[in-house]
Write a protein that binds this DNA or RNA. Structure first.
Lengths: 113, 113
DNA sequence: ATATAATATATCGTTTAATGATATATAAGT
DNA sequence: ACTTATATATCATTAAACGATATATTATAT
Protein backbone atom coordinates (compact mmCIF):
# COMPACT_ATOMS: atom_id res chain seq x y z
CA UNK A 1 0.00 0.00 0.00
CA UNK A 2 1.18 3.52 -0.79
CA UNK A 3 3.01 5.46 1.84
CA UNK A 4 0.87 8.56 1.72
CA UNK A 5 -1.72 7.68 -0.83
CA UNK A 6 -4.77 5.54 -0.40
CA UNK A 7 -8.00 6.05 1.44
CA UNK A 8 -7.25 3.09 3.66
CA UNK A 9 -4.17 4.97 4.86
CA UNK A 10 -6.58 7.61 6.07
CA UNK A 11 -5.57 10.38 3.76
CA UNK A 12 -7.55 12.22 1.14
CA UNK A 13 -6.44 13.72 -2.13
CA UNK A 14 -7.71 17.20 -2.95
CA UNK A 15 -10.37 15.68 -5.18
CA UNK A 16 -11.58 13.19 -2.57
CA UNK A 17 -11.44 15.92 0.09
CA UNK A 18 -13.76 18.27 -1.77
CA UNK A 19 -16.19 15.53 -2.80
CA UNK A 20 -16.43 14.21 0.75
CA UNK A 21 -16.82 17.74 2.07
CA UNK A 22 -19.67 18.37 -0.38
CA UNK A 23 -21.37 15.23 0.88
CA UNK A 24 -21.57 16.31 4.51
CA UNK A 25 -25.03 17.23 3.22
CA UNK A 26 -26.69 14.85 0.76
CA UNK A 27 -26.20 15.64 -2.92
CA UNK A 28 -26.36 14.00 -6.31
CA UNK A 29 -23.31 13.88 -8.56
CA UNK A 30 -23.89 16.88 -10.74
CA UNK A 31 -24.63 19.06 -7.75
CA UNK A 32 -21.33 17.97 -6.17
CA UNK A 33 -19.42 19.37 -9.14
CA UNK A 34 -21.30 22.66 -8.96
CA UNK A 35 -20.94 22.93 -5.21
CA UNK A 36 -17.17 22.50 -5.41
CA UNK A 37 -16.81 25.13 -8.12
CA UNK A 38 -18.98 27.55 -6.17
CA UNK A 39 -17.23 26.84 -2.87
CA UNK A 40 -13.79 27.45 -4.37
CA UNK A 41 -14.79 30.41 -6.58
CA UNK A 42 -13.96 28.36 -9.70
CA UNK A 43 -10.44 27.73 -8.44
CA UNK A 44 -10.98 24.00 -8.15
CA UNK A 45 -13.11 22.09 -10.60
CA UNK A 46 -13.73 18.41 -10.96
CA UNK A 47 -14.97 16.89 -14.20
CA UNK A 48 -17.35 13.94 -14.45
CA UNK A 49 -14.56 11.40 -15.01
CA UNK A 50 -12.69 12.27 -11.83
CA UNK A 51 -15.90 12.61 -9.88
CA UNK A 52 -17.50 9.30 -10.70
CA UNK A 53 -14.20 7.45 -10.32
CA UNK A 54 -13.73 8.99 -6.89
CA UNK A 55 -17.34 8.37 -5.87
CA UNK A 56 -16.85 4.67 -6.58
CA UNK A 57 -13.77 4.60 -4.37
CA UNK A 58 -15.46 6.51 -1.57
CA UNK A 59 -18.44 4.13 -1.72
CA UNK A 60 -16.13 1.10 -1.64
CA UNK A 61 -14.32 2.55 1.39
CA UNK A 62 -17.71 3.24 3.04
CA UNK A 63 -16.90 6.91 3.46
CA UNK A 64 -20.08 7.81 1.60
CA UNK A 65 -23.30 5.88 0.97
CA UNK A 66 -26.37 6.13 -1.20
CA UNK A 67 -28.90 8.43 0.36
CA UNK A 68 -32.43 7.19 0.66
CA UNK A 69 -34.04 8.96 -2.25
CA UNK A 70 -37.30 8.61 -4.12
CA UNK A 71 -36.03 10.06 -7.43
CA UNK A 72 -34.74 7.15 -9.54
CA UNK A 73 -33.17 9.50 -12.10
CA UNK A 74 -30.67 10.98 -9.73
CA UNK A 75 -28.43 9.06 -7.39
CA UNK A 76 -27.97 10.92 -4.17
CA UNK A 77 -25.03 10.36 -1.86
CA UNK A 78 -24.15 11.36 1.70
CA UNK A 79 -21.04 11.03 3.85
CA UNK A 80 -21.11 8.23 6.42
CA UNK A 81 -20.08 8.68 10.04
CA UNK A 82 -16.77 7.08 9.10
CA UNK A 83 -16.46 9.57 6.25
CA UNK A 84 -17.10 12.55 8.52
CA UNK A 85 -14.50 11.32 10.99
CA UNK A 86 -11.90 10.91 8.27
CA UNK A 87 -12.74 14.33 6.89
CA UNK A 88 -12.23 15.95 10.28
CA UNK A 89 -8.92 14.13 10.66
CA UNK A 90 -7.93 15.34 7.22
CA UNK A 91 -8.81 18.95 8.03
CA UNK A 92 -6.53 18.66 11.03
CA UNK A 93 -3.74 17.21 8.90
CA UNK A 94 -4.07 20.02 6.37
CA UNK A 95 -4.11 22.63 9.11
CA UNK A 96 -0.84 21.16 10.32
CA UNK A 97 0.63 21.31 6.84
CA UNK A 98 -0.03 25.04 6.81
CA UNK A 99 1.49 25.39 10.27
CA UNK A 100 4.63 23.59 9.12
CA UNK A 101 5.06 26.15 6.37
CA UNK A 102 4.35 29.05 8.70
CA UNK A 103 7.04 27.80 11.08
CA UNK A 104 9.64 27.59 8.31
CA UNK A 105 8.92 31.10 7.08
CA UNK A 106 8.69 32.50 10.58
CA UNK A 107 12.14 31.11 11.37
CA UNK A 108 13.38 33.14 8.42
CA UNK A 109 11.62 36.29 9.56
CA UNK A 110 9.33 36.23 6.54
CA UNK A 111 5.60 36.50 6.77
CA UNK A 112 3.08 34.64 4.68
CA UNK A 113 0.56 37.04 3.20
CA UNK B 1 -2.83 19.03 -18.92
CA UNK B 2 -4.60 17.93 -15.77
CA UNK B 3 -7.27 20.08 -14.27
CA UNK B 4 -5.82 20.23 -10.78
CA UNK B 5 -2.62 18.32 -11.11
CA UNK B 6 0.64 19.50 -12.56
CA UNK B 7 3.23 21.92 -11.34
CA UNK B 8 2.65 24.12 -14.36
CA UNK B 9 -0.93 24.53 -13.14
CA UNK B 10 0.58 26.02 -10.03
CA UNK B 11 -0.45 23.34 -7.58
CA UNK B 12 1.61 21.08 -5.43
CA UNK B 13 0.94 17.56 -4.28
CA UNK B 14 1.63 16.78 -0.63
CA UNK B 15 4.96 15.25 -1.60
CA UNK B 16 6.07 18.23 -3.70
CA UNK B 17 4.81 20.61 -1.00
CA UNK B 18 6.96 19.09 1.73
CA UNK B 19 10.04 18.76 -0.45
CA UNK B 20 9.81 22.36 -1.61
CA UNK B 21 9.19 23.51 1.94
CA UNK B 22 12.30 21.65 3.11
CA UNK B 23 14.29 23.43 0.44
CA UNK B 24 13.50 26.94 1.62
CA UNK B 25 16.89 26.33 3.20
CA UNK B 26 19.49 24.42 1.17
CA UNK B 27 19.64 20.68 1.75
CA UNK B 28 20.84 17.52 0.10
CA UNK B 29 18.43 14.70 -0.73
CA UNK B 30 18.86 12.47 2.28
CA UNK B 31 18.46 15.39 4.64
CA UNK B 32 15.21 16.33 2.92
CA UNK B 33 13.73 12.95 3.83
CA UNK B 34 14.83 13.29 7.42
CA UNK B 35 13.62 16.87 7.71
CA UNK B 36 10.16 15.93 6.49
CA UNK B 37 9.87 13.03 8.92
CA UNK B 38 11.02 15.21 11.79
CA UNK B 39 8.80 18.13 10.80
CA UNK B 40 5.70 15.93 10.65
CA UNK B 41 6.53 13.77 13.69
CA UNK B 42 6.81 10.70 11.45
CA UNK B 43 3.30 11.26 10.10
CA UNK B 44 4.52 11.93 6.59
CA UNK B 45 7.43 10.09 5.11
CA UNK B 46 8.85 10.12 1.64
CA UNK B 47 11.02 7.30 0.33
CA UNK B 48 13.94 7.74 -2.03
CA UNK B 49 11.95 6.82 -5.15
CA UNK B 50 9.30 9.46 -4.59
CA UNK B 51 11.87 12.00 -3.54
CA UNK B 52 14.25 11.74 -6.47
CA UNK B 53 11.39 11.59 -8.96
CA UNK B 54 9.89 14.72 -7.46
CA UNK B 55 13.24 16.50 -7.27
CA UNK B 56 13.68 15.94 -11.01
CA UNK B 57 10.27 17.49 -11.68
CA UNK B 58 10.93 20.43 -9.39
CA UNK B 59 14.26 21.05 -11.09
CA UNK B 60 12.66 20.87 -14.54
CA UNK B 61 10.01 23.37 -13.44
CA UNK B 62 12.73 25.62 -12.00
CA UNK B 63 11.14 25.61 -8.58
CA UNK B 64 14.40 24.37 -7.07
CA UNK B 65 17.98 24.54 -8.29
CA UNK B 66 21.34 23.03 -7.49
CA UNK B 67 22.98 24.90 -4.67
CA UNK B 68 26.55 25.98 -5.13
CA UNK B 69 28.38 23.34 -3.17
CA UNK B 70 31.91 22.15 -2.89
CA UNK B 71 31.11 18.59 -1.84
CA UNK B 72 30.91 16.46 -5.00
CA UNK B 73 29.47 13.50 -3.08
CA UNK B 74 26.28 15.22 -2.07
CA UNK B 75 24.02 17.20 -4.34
CA UNK B 76 22.52 20.12 -2.53
CA UNK B 77 19.34 21.83 -3.64
CA UNK B 78 17.54 25.05 -2.76
CA UNK B 79 14.19 26.55 -3.68
CA UNK B 80 14.26 29.27 -6.32
CA UNK B 81 12.42 32.57 -6.00
CA UNK B 82 9.79 31.09 -8.31
CA UNK B 83 9.59 28.06 -6.01
CA UNK B 84 9.12 30.22 -2.92
CA UNK B 85 6.36 32.18 -4.61
CA UNK B 86 4.54 29.01 -5.62
CA UNK B 87 4.94 27.61 -2.13
CA UNK B 88 3.40 30.71 -0.58
CA UNK B 89 0.53 30.53 -3.04
CA UNK B 90 0.06 26.89 -2.16
CA UNK B 91 0.02 27.62 1.58
CA UNK B 92 -2.76 30.11 0.89
CA UNK B 93 -4.67 27.55 -1.17
CA UNK B 94 -4.39 24.97 1.58
CA UNK B 95 -5.46 27.46 4.21
CA UNK B 96 -8.55 28.10 2.10
CA UNK B 97 -9.24 24.39 1.85
CA UNK B 98 -9.35 24.25 5.63
CA UNK B 99 -11.61 27.30 5.74
CA UNK B 100 -13.99 25.66 3.28
CA UNK B 101 -14.35 22.71 5.62
CA UNK B 102 -14.75 24.93 8.67
CA UNK B 103 -17.57 26.79 6.94
CA UNK B 104 -19.42 23.58 6.12
CA UNK B 105 -19.19 22.29 9.67
CA UNK B 106 -20.00 25.67 11.18
CA UNK B 107 -23.18 25.82 9.11
CA UNK B 108 -24.17 22.55 10.75
CA UNK B 109 -23.37 23.81 14.22
CA UNK B 110 -20.52 21.33 14.58
CA UNK B 111 -17.06 22.27 15.65
CA UNK B 112 -13.86 20.88 14.32
CA UNK B 113 -11.62 19.79 17.18
C1' DA C 1 -41.86 23.02 -33.51
C1' DT C 2 -37.11 22.73 -32.77
C1' DA C 3 -32.62 23.92 -31.88
C1' DT C 4 -29.67 24.90 -28.05
C1' DA C 5 -28.07 24.94 -23.49
C1' DA C 6 -28.22 22.99 -19.04
C1' DT C 7 -28.85 19.00 -16.19
C1' DA C 8 -27.38 14.35 -15.06
C1' DT C 9 -24.75 9.92 -15.11
C1' DA C 10 -21.26 6.92 -16.83
C1' DT C 11 -17.09 4.45 -18.99
C1' DC C 12 -12.67 3.85 -21.68
C1' DG C 13 -8.14 4.64 -22.33
C1' DT C 14 -4.27 7.68 -21.43
C1' DT C 15 -1.30 10.52 -18.67
C1' DT C 16 0.72 11.83 -14.34
C1' DA C 17 2.07 10.82 -9.56
C1' DA C 18 3.78 7.86 -6.03
C1' DT C 19 6.06 4.07 -4.61
C1' DG C 20 8.19 -0.78 -3.70
C1' DA C 21 11.97 -3.12 -4.84
C1' DT C 22 16.36 -2.94 -5.74
C1' DA C 23 21.21 -1.46 -6.68
C1' DT C 24 25.36 0.91 -5.46
C1' DA C 25 28.82 3.17 -2.64
C1' DT C 26 30.83 5.44 1.49
C1' DA C 27 31.41 6.29 6.42
C1' DA C 28 31.05 5.18 11.14
C1' DG C 29 30.45 2.64 14.95
C1' DT C 30 30.86 -2.32 17.58
C1' DA D 1 34.46 -8.32 9.91
C1' DC D 2 29.72 -6.76 10.57
C1' DT D 3 26.10 -3.76 10.95
C1' DT D 4 23.90 0.57 10.76
C1' DA D 5 23.54 5.03 8.91
C1' DT D 6 24.39 8.10 5.15
C1' DA D 7 23.69 9.11 0.33
C1' DT D 8 21.99 8.81 -4.54
C1' DA D 9 19.60 6.60 -8.17
C1' DT D 10 16.59 3.76 -11.52
C1' DC D 11 13.01 0.37 -13.03
C1' DA D 12 8.69 -1.41 -13.14
C1' DT D 13 4.24 -1.34 -11.02
C1' DT D 14 0.26 0.65 -8.82
C1' DA D 15 -2.81 4.43 -7.96
C1' DA D 16 -4.97 8.84 -9.09
C1' DA D 17 -6.74 12.15 -12.26
C1' DC D 18 -8.55 13.26 -16.32
C1' DG D 19 -9.78 14.11 -21.57
C1' DA D 20 -12.71 12.35 -24.70
C1' DT D 21 -16.78 10.58 -25.42
C1' DA D 22 -21.53 8.62 -25.02
C1' DT D 23 -26.24 8.90 -23.60
C1' DA D 24 -30.62 10.72 -21.96
C1' DT D 25 -33.64 14.25 -19.97
C1' DT D 26 -35.34 18.90 -19.18
C1' DA D 27 -35.65 23.75 -19.79
C1' DT D 28 -35.29 27.78 -22.63
C1' DA D 29 -35.03 30.49 -26.46
C1' DT D 30 -36.16 31.42 -31.47
Amino acid sequence: MGRNVSLEMGELTDTAYYILLSLVDAKHGYLIMQTIEEMTDQRFSIGPASMYTTIKKLLAAELIQLFDDYDPKRKTYIATEKGIELLKKEVKRRREMVLHAEEVFKRRGEQLT
